[in-house]
């Protein structure tokens, strides 16, 4: 319940405050979002399998975001920023699909 409240508060805050993303953060935010989504989907899967752990979620969420952002940063420094961010998005997307498939199998048994 509390996380749902957090979700609503976050959306409302984003809509009401309407801040602009700082220029320095702009390349990293999309990748960070995808990484965080991966963590959230993984948490949902763990929740469904009744082995959800707050601590694991928090650590995986933060580390996912930081590593993804760092990889994009590193790619930019190496001059392969767009390719590396594509790669990160692909890998995270595969993970999201895999977790979503596991959730689907558990719910629908299909």
């Amino acid at each position: 319940m509390i996380p749902v409240i957090g979700l609503v508060v976050g959306v409302v805050a984003g809509l009401v405050l309407q801040p602009t993303v700082p220029v320095g953060l702009q390349p990293y935010l999309p990748i960070a979002i995808v990484a965080a989504l991966d963590a959230v989907i993984g948490a949902l899967r763990a929740l469904g399998e009744r082995r959800f752990d707050d601590r694991v979620f928090v650590v995986s969420f933060i580390s996912n975001v930081i590593i993804a952002a760092f990889m994009v940063y590193l790619g930019d420094q190496l001059g392969v920023g767009s390719q590396l961010s594509t790669g990160v998005v692909v890998v995270l997307g595969i993970r999201i699909f895999a977790n979503a498939a596991a959730i689907r199998r558990r719910i629908f048994h299909a």
Binding site: G6, L7, V9, V11, A13, A32, L37, F57, F61
Partner: peptide, 9 residues
């Protein structure tokens, strides 16, 4: 965390 994710999205 989830709130910040929603905010960021």
């Amino acid at each position: 965390l989830i709130g910040s994710l929603a905010f960021a999205i």
